[in-house]
Design a protein around this nucleic acid. Structure first.
Lengths: 246, 246
DNA sequence: ACAAAAGTGTTTGGATTACACCCATGA
DNA sequence: TCATGGGTGTAATCCAAACACTTTTGT
């Protein structure tokens, strides 16, 4: 409570009133899609990492800034996807706070989704949160305000843009295996894909470099080959879209 | 100038500071795609119809409100597509006005695009504009601030969503001809389409009702048949997407 | 030997592309 | 009769889906 009031003072000076940003940070690990969430200091609800916009700051830069603070990572793939502006988005949420509290004002929030390499991120809570963790998209905890809705919208956008944006490139580590790539596509699209066809299709796009290494996994199996996106080819291919007709 | 100051007074009371909306209103007429623009009282630059958000108003409702004021039409197809938040979007534009002027504050604007039946719209200027007119998308006049950029972004979004949103349905009058429909698609996609294939594809979707009328055009040609979208079928078809693979 | 990974083959069906042809019709 | 619109035919091609078979390889 005191923490909020303390931050409120300077927020009124530093930031644009009525505009906030929220980031849906996607990561891929252990064959599941994850979202970075913050847990409040006082309650058990979770929230999206977000922030406010400096008086002279570009909104994209504001998103980049929070991303960097929360993940430690730079050059994160970031895409604005939607503004959320219901007048009662935060209703009840700050009811026990004074009306002069910054956070209690009405905010139109601009939603960004970010795609990060899970292995390069070190989650860090912000000053009003007790922890910052990856949460499985299939098993989200209870979220504040309309944050669940914002995540759903981000996921829908992600699905629609899978063939038009460098999504695989941004979510996977530098080196990855074909089964990992396929699982990522299956999770985003929400359905199983045929292995052989997926392999052929991906190779047909000519956007992957096959490496001379393989990953020693623990199991009693053949160790899978490692691949890497060929950045130039990938981006060139995406500029035309990986498919589509008309 | 006085007009601005007069409006400014009440704006500070009625609206959310720092958030505005701008609408890119598309219409289709004479085989060309058009955008509804407003001309300022004092200069020769044109602007998108837009407005501010009431203290207790939903952002979508704010867009609906301006649309209705500018076009007289209701139930307009509306889609939010992007927020624009560069800190210097309006730089220089209000430089000769006092700093307390509402319009001179920094605004993050939320872009909407609207699709209207050209024949049902009666353009009406707002209180700070001298006129409100349809302008050909291929031949836009000089625009204020970043409004040209906003239109370009709206058009890009429109193109991407052609197969997923009821775009033809919203842009054409109730009754239309096959060549009109094809031209609309060609303009949005920016390329020629094969006539026979287009005809078959459209009819194959089973979303058009063929009418027993034809349009008497002036020329020495066969008068084209009229068609109408079958609303139920169209929306049902779009919910699955008119194509796509994966 | 077993299980996962890699790579390829094949068949089927559908959709797209690109033409081309014929008919209708209004001035 | 000419230009446009309406409607269909067709062959080439490409792609996706589904399935199956083989080989490789780490334990």
């Amino acid at each position: 409570m005191e923490k909020f009031k303390e931050l409120s003072e300077e927020a009124w000076q530093l930031y644009l009133l009525h505009v906030s940003i929220d980031c849906v940070v996607f990561g891929f690990h252990d064959f599941t899609l994850k979202v970075l969430l913050l847990k409040g200091l006082h309650d058990d609800s979770w929230a999206l990492p977000g922030g406010y916009i400096g008086n002279e700051e570009d909104i994209d830069d504001s998103a980049i800034r929070t991303l960097k603070e929360r993940t430690g990572a730079e050059n994160i793939y970031l895409e604005q996807f939607r503004a959320f502006g219901s007048p009662n988005r935060s209703e009840h949420y700050f009811s026990e706070f004074p009306d002069t509290l910054w956070h209690k004002q009405r905010f139109v929030t601009i939603g960004y989704y970010a795609l990060v390499d899970y292995t390069l991120v070190l989650p860090k809570p912000d000053s009003i949160s007790s922890s910052c963790e990856w949460k499985d998209i299939e098993n989200l905890p209870s979220l504040i305000m309309d944050h669940k809705y914002i995540i759903d919208q981000a996921l829908t956008t992600l699905r629609m843009q899978l063939s038009h944006k460098p999504i695989g490139y941004s979510l996977l580590p530098d080196k990855f295996t074909m089964p990992e790539l396929q699982k990522l596509y299956e999770i985003i699209l929400g359905k199983k894909l045929n292995r052989g066809n997926f392999y052929r299709k991906m190779m047909g796009y000519d956007i992957l470099d096959k490496l001379d290494e393989s990953r020693k996994s623990g199991g009693a199996h053949k160790s899978p080959n490692l691949y890497r996106f060929n950045k130039e080819k990938y981006e060139n291919a995406l500029s035309n879209g990986l498919k589509e007709s008309w």
